[in-house]
Amino acid sequence: MIEYPEIDRYSSLDSPMHRFDPRAKIIAFSVLIFALVLLYDLKLAFIGLLGSILFLIASKLPFRFVFQHITWVSLFIVPFLVIMPLTVKGEEFFSFYAIRMTREGLEYGMLVALRALSAVILVLPMIATTRFDLTIKALDRLKVPTMLVQMLMFSYRYIFVFAVEFQRTWRAMAARGFTLKMNLYALRTVGKALGTLFVRSYERGDRVYNALRSRGYTGNPRTLVEFRMHARDYILAALIIGFAGSLHIISFVRVI
């Protein structure tokens, strides 16, 4: 049995973030994420990161789950911390032969890393605390273009089917003695297996479209769902958006 990499695995827990209305949650955290990635002050970005961690803690998501998701994204953040100090011009604070590191570069690298890390952390309380189908339905209710919602909906449904199909292909290859090595033959074989998966996906797409049409699909599927905003949803949304706004007000005041 395949272990599905489900983002909503812990959506049945109980926390303030889990109880938060999905529509308000998407809006509030989206505003906060945009506010944090647009900060230009290192100290404020750090406060933003601390705030993000607090929201994450409030979501009660297991550490192991959080760690798994953040580690992979963090790998893309680390290069900024290394490259920026070496490439941005400014006051040198370290030199070793031709290697020169600048304070401005280090600060800029840290700023990029802090902003990215905050955004990645905030995605978890935003998405991992709601069943993914409800997140999709919330996006639909928020009038996100139907084409995007459908792409998300069908991707979510079929990514697991393709994962199983790829696993089956991989097992069939392993059963006939294939082992993955870093040589041209292995890469070519994996390429062919992926190609087969694409062809199968195309054929499945055709069959799914037939199934959709045979149940009256006309390009705009609707779903039934009831969302209800409570006072606590308004308060929590105001708190998150207020936090985002206050960071920018402080930033603005400091510039003046």
Binding site: D133, R157, R207, V208, A211, R215, G216, T218
Partner: peptide
């Protein structure tokens, strides 16, 4: 798997009647 294309069983069964 060709036929159950909606995110949950409820949504899938409701799909046709809604249409």
């Amino acid at each position: 798997d060709d036929q159950l294309f909606m995110p949950t069983l409820f949504d899938d069964i409701a799909f046709g009647p809604i249409n």
